[in-house]
């Protein structure tokens, strides 16, 4: 039996001082939400495993699951995006897009050590808008909220989920091997990525070079555009057109200099389908914000809508007060 002072392992109480910083950040986010006309909404902390749990594509082991009153499997929400996707496909079904939604709250997962991982997130979603302007607006809002709170220079890493997908399709025939390579990349295991390619494929030296180069290349737009000539594939060309357009949009917001491209980026969520990004602050060992385009997620709830969004890790940001 736990002692009377204990909380479950991994979660904690907040003192008035630490809460103050969190509230300052959330107030800042509310102001920006009003300025960009994002409507505040709230979804329940508990959802069905069969709907939000499965559609979130988060590993079942990571979800905190329990049995509800009617014997149905429930989860505590692991993110704020998937419940909003559900809501847009249900409550808002008859309402025409676009939607700009803003919310904040706590999300929960089991971590590898068997602890409960609790995060307080601020979440912005721009739904029903395909254009890159939407992606740019979302990144700009994330950067704006962070900059309002901390003067530490930000670094935005930017990638596109389709690059690795096309590159692997072009270089490897076997789907099972492609899946393995992608999984290695998803878990950031670059050593295994190379090992699978060396030992389980018979691809040409030239193709290997391409794969290894893209893995280690982190840089500015001109370096990335050199890769465009690798394939004539229209989808490939489209990705690079998108990347150079997003750079222009970010330049316009005054954030162009902060971007570093990583074309092998896949992101924390499997539902990302296009441009994705992470924001880091000098001195913080964790991601402060991350987001991206997820054009299939709302479709998995039965309404075909494109969308992009982001979440800020409020607690990590609150430690970066300057």
């Amino acid at each position: 039996m736990p002692r009377s002072f204990e909380t479950p392992l991994g979660v904690k109480d907040y003192t008035p001082e630490s809460l103050k910083k969190i509230e300052t950040i959330i107030d800042g986010a509310k102001k920006i939400a009003a300025e960009y006309q994002y409507q505040g909404i709230k979804t329940p902390a508990i959802e069905y495993y069969q709907t939000v749990g499965l559609n979130s594509q988060i590993r079942a082991d990571e979800l905190i699951r329990f049995t509800g009153p009617l014997g149905r499997m429930l989860i505590i929400r692991p993110d704020l995006t998937t419940p909003i996707a559900r809501m847009v496909a249900s409550t808002y079904r008859e309402i025409a897009p676009p939607f700009r939604f803003f919310t904040y709250g706590d999300v929960y997962r089991n971590d590898a050590e068997g602890l409960i991982e609790e995060k307080t997130q601020i979440d912005f979603e721009f739904i029903g808008e395909e254009s890159l302007q939407a992606d740019g607006e979302i990144i700009n809002i994330a950067a704006g909220i962070i900059k309002n709170f901390s003067e530490t220079p930000i670094r935005i890493t930017l990638g596109h989920t389709q690059i690795m997908k096309i590159l692997l399709e072009e270089t490897m025939k076997e789907e099972a091997i492609r899946e393995k390579v992608l999984r290695a990349l998803q878990t950031l295991d670059y050593v295994n990525f190379r090992k699978i390619i060396e030992e389980e494929t018979s691809i040409t030296e030239e193709d290997k070079e391409k794969l290894y180069n893209i893995l280690m290349m982190k840089g500015k737009l001109p370096d990335m555009m050199a890769i465009e000539s690798w394939y004539d594939h229209p989808e490939w060309k489209k990705i690079f057109a998108e990347i150079s357009d997003i750079q222009k949009i970010m330049d316009h917001y005054g954030l162009g200099e902060a971007i570093i491209y990583d074309l092998s980026l896949l992101g924390r969520h499997k539902y990302y389908t296009g441009i994705l990004f992470n924001i880091y602050l000098q001195g913080s060992p964790y991601k402060i914000a991350s987001g991206g385009r997820y054009d299939g997620l709302i479709g998995s709830f039965g309404r075909d809508l494109s969308a992009t969004g982001m979440a800020i890790d409020v607690l990590e940001l609150s430690k970066m007060c300057s």
């Binding site: 878990t187 950031l188 295991d189 670059y190 050593v191 295994n192 090992k195």
Partner: peptide, 11 residues
């Protein structure tokens, strides 16, 4: 053994 998702860069 630690099962943490850490960037494993080089052998």
């Amino acid at each position: 053994e630690v099962e943490e998702k850490l960037l494993e860069l080089m052998d």
